[in-house]
Design a protein around this nucleic acid. Structure first.
Lengths: 128, 128
DNA sequence: TTTACAGTTAGCCAATTAACTAAGTATAAT
DNA sequence: ATTATACTTAGTTAATTGGCTAACTGTAAA
């Protein structure tokens, strides 16, 4: 890795909202944009920009399925070049109140398989 | 560690000049401000502010000896809470051209013990 | 084939950041 | 005591960043 790429990554993880998304994706595997909007409670365009930055840094990938865009941690994050940083983040924030609260919130926001009654998409009879 | 402290650290390492200083301190143990000014070729006040940020983040400590201020990596950086990040940075930039060039430059700038002829302080008959 | 929905792009604004110069503080040399 | 040196603080500026609303694109539902 070179300086430019390294700084791209450190910049990506130097914003609280972006770090919250990364932490969420460590426990949730996959989240769609509207889940992230609901979690962070910021506007859709801002979420879109944050996710764009995370993708540019190689931390996140996305796939589009009909109307929805789903995000997950990039495979790259499990490689030796990236994993130590990800693990450091996870450890550093393991007991952070905001992150713990997010984990609770995510159960209601995104856990469609097990708690479908709280899933917005499910309510609209979608099966994502 | 909590979110605030974590972001303080990631912000500290999301600037190229600050990362260059950290990498230099991994190989040099101790550098005085004027060495850093010479290495980065930016103004003294800017260096002072960068070093202030690194100290606030807990990455660097300083000591003052007569007219000079010496910086080194904080002990904290060897602790489990910080070390993975430091190691990741070191690995990521191990082959970066700027960092490699800095290492060469430092031999002339800061290696007072072994190449005193190139040491500005030495020239003035100081013994730092 | 409209209409509604999910996200992105464009454009704006306020706050932050990294750089500078000039002035101030502290310490050592003359 | 004065001057020079090493660094910090104060204050300015330009660029970047994170947020918003409004308008656009793509897809599915009515």
């Amino acid at each position: 890795m070179n300086m430019k790429k390294t700084i791209l990554i450190t910049k990506a993880v130097s914003d609280g909202n972006r770090v919250r998304v990364l932490m969420a994706l460590m426990h949730q595997k996959e989240l769609c944009a509207c889940h992230i909007i609901e979690l962070l409670r910021i506007s859709a365009p801002t979420v879109s920009r944050h996710m764009g930055l995370l993708q540019t840094a190689g931390l996140v990938t996305s796939r589009k399925d009909s109307r929805w865009v789903y995000y997950r941690l990039a495979d790259e994050t499990r490689e030796p070049a990236m994993l130590p940083l990800i693990n450091w983040l996870a450890d550093s924030l393991a007991t952070d109140p905001v992150i713990l609260q997010d984990r609770i919130a995510l159960e209601h926001i995104a856990d469609c398989d097990t708690e479908q009654k709280n899933c917005k998409h499910y309510k609209n009879n979608q099966t994502h």
